[in-house]
Amino acid sequence: MSVGRRSSATERLSVLVAVLSVPAFTGMWELVARSGIVNTVLFPPPSTVAVAVLEWIRSGQFFADLMASLARVAAGFAIGAAGGIVLGILTGRFRLVSSLLSPLFHILRPIPPIAFVPIVILWFGLSETGKLFLVVWGVFFTVWLATHIGVQKVDHGLIRAAQMLGTPQSQMLWEIVLLGALPYITVGLRTAVSISFYTLVAAELAGAFAGIVYRIEIAQQNMQTGQVMGGLAALGLLSFVADRSFAILAERAVWWR
């Protein structure tokens, strides 16, 4: 019993420390920045960052930037994930399709999407298509590989049972195989959420007219370090929220567990 009490006391302490962690860190930052040890132009205190962020929101630019970035990530993720799942099912299930596509995909997959920025600018200029291409590229290979592996790990007994019950080929693919591989696919999709934000950075740095990373770059050119840090915080928060919501969504996707 005493063990139980002690562990619950430890638990309460760690909750308290966890709650205080970010405020304490922010307070330290404020103190260091204001103490004059560092150059506040390059290293502004959190209060300056907060003012910059408030101004960003009040001007209405924040909302426009957020929407521009979100639209790129969402569209790129949807297209890349859909393509990755469909081709992953086909390469995972059919030897011949795998022989045709897997070697190609394995060569292209390790190339970091960011390395495609120069050629994408040549191909698509500063258009939205180029940005979409980069995000799709990053997402597709991650989801394809997870699906391909997941399909091969589907319990063979389930497939045999389905065969014995007269399951037609299309239902076999899009129900038994897809749902059998779903636990693997959701892991791939979650990784792809982070990847879509990495590639968003590359896409917007390559040249854009709105977007959170675009705003960071503009602020940097104007030496508005508070705005730069505010932009970074916004990007971090956005990516965090996306990852957490996806985790919750993924848990529901595998609804039978």
Binding site: L158, R160, A161, Q163, M164, L165, G166, L179
Partner: peptide, 18 residues
Amino acid sequence: KPRPEIGMVFQQPHLFPW
């Protein structure tokens, strides 16, 4: 190939978990 009028029960139930 398998035919639906031939049923099979395996050592493991192999029920569809979903």
